[in-house]
Simulated assay, not measured.
Amino acid sequence: MITVAACTAAFSLVGLAASHAADPTAEEQAAALAAVPKEAQKYYGGYWYATNIVADPFANWKPHAPPWKICHNDSYLGNSWRANLVAELKALTKQLADQGLAEPELNVTNSNGDINLELTQLKAQIAQGCDLIMSYPGSATGLCAGIKEAFDKGILFVTIDSTVTCPEALNVATNPYYRGQYEGEWIAKQLGGKGTALIMNGQPGTANTVAQETGFRKAVEAFPDIKVAGSLFGMWTGSVAKTEVLKFLATHPEPVHAVFSTGNMGVGVGQAFEQSGRALPIITEVTNLCSLLAYWKEKNLTANTFVQDGGPMAYSAFIPALHMMAGQKPKVNTIFMPLPSITAENFNDYYDASMTVQSTCFANGKDLHLVPDSYFEQFFTGGEPRAKVEIVSTNAQPQ
């Protein structure tokens, strides 16, 4: 069983390894981004905290012919976001199978936060003949040996919103540094530049965790009267987050005015404050659980969140994978994409009266595509067009 204490220790090692001693110079940043399409470069700020940008990384790589064996290598399946991610990949695999392009069953592994086990599982999937491996990796570096082995055997390894530094992987993600920076600036504005904030991280060691916290801290550094009181780990699971916040508040009597929650934990965070007899803080999130919107409505929170359900995110990563399996070449190894957000101004576009604090759905609104499929076309050259493979998002919004 994975523990938060063990996770914290893992973060101190893996997180430091994934970070950089100094920011690249403006010239170095420009050189790294030269191959990134100009219209997308605005989403790459702070990219070095999450990954490296490698130009033309698959120049000599060729995909296997269909039907493909599609696999998913996951570091943790203990919350609804990850469950929706896997459900979407299973549905997309079946769609390809119905067209004769894939085997019907998605092969799924779960290491439950153990990076050594995840690497072992990845090597087993390679040996089992996977042609395409989708992954939410538990470390920016811990799977590199397996990813290199997959690459050398013509197997495509695609990360879903948690980037790796291994140059043989294709990363498809929203920029975690940007998310942290955005929420740090938003909280600072709401606090008028003065107050105390708490960071509620998810899984230690992932590129998302490292980059989001860095982006947040960099943003609030510009406000000397804002103090970051602590950094906790809740495994992107509300009940775990609630327990960790309760422990923190019991030993930190000073007021906490805002919490940056990095996914699926906003309600647990708020409930911990209530149970402790504390005033509810500003809460920002990066995932759009229906329960959060219900809690937001019930408590009249000052809040915001990105729209980032695991199902639509899996779909977004699958589209570039299909570009490559059709023979096209990516211009860079990391594709960053923007995200919609939910604010007080557009709250009613996502909220539904049937949502409750117990709801497990995600408030995706009417359009389940985080970006249009066409957004990814600018990142590819050559080969057959992806449009020859018909695929649609199937991740519905239950209430």
Rank of each mutant, 00 (worst) to 15 (best):
T3H: 07
T8A: 06
F11L: 10
G15Q: 02
P24W: 11
T25Y: 09
E27M: 08
A34K: 15
W48K: 12
L77A: 10
G78D: 03
G78M: 00
G78H: 04
W81C: 10
E88K: 11
K90N: 12
T93A: 08
K94N: 12
E103H: 01
P104L: 11
N107I: 03
S111T: 09
G113N: 04
L117T: 15
L119H: 01
A124N: 10
G129E: 04
G129Q: 04
I133Q: 00
S139T: 13
A140C: 14
T141K: 02
C144L: 00
A150R: 01
D152E: 15
I155T: 12
T163A: 14
T165N: 05
T165W: 00
N171E: 02
N171K: 01
V172M: 10
T174L: 03
R179N: 13
K189I: 05
Q190W: 08
G192S: 13
T196W: 03
A197D: 01
A197W: 01
G202P: 04
T206Q: 13
T209S: 15
T209L: 00
A219T: 13
A222T: 11
G230M: 07
T237L: 07
V240T: 15
E244N: 08
F248L: 05
L249D: 10
T251N: 15
E254P: 03
E274F: 02
I282H: 05
N300Y: 04
L301A: 01
F306D: 09
Q308R: 11
D309R: 09
S316L: 09
G327N: 10
G327L: 06
K329C: 02
V332D: 04
T334K: 01
I335N: 06
I335T: 03
I342D: 08
A344F: 08
A344V: 08
N346D: 12
Y351T: 12
A353N: 14
G365M: 07
K366H: 05
L370I: 15
E377W: 12
Q378G: 11
T381N: 06
A387P: 00
V389I: 15
T394N: 14
P398Q: 05
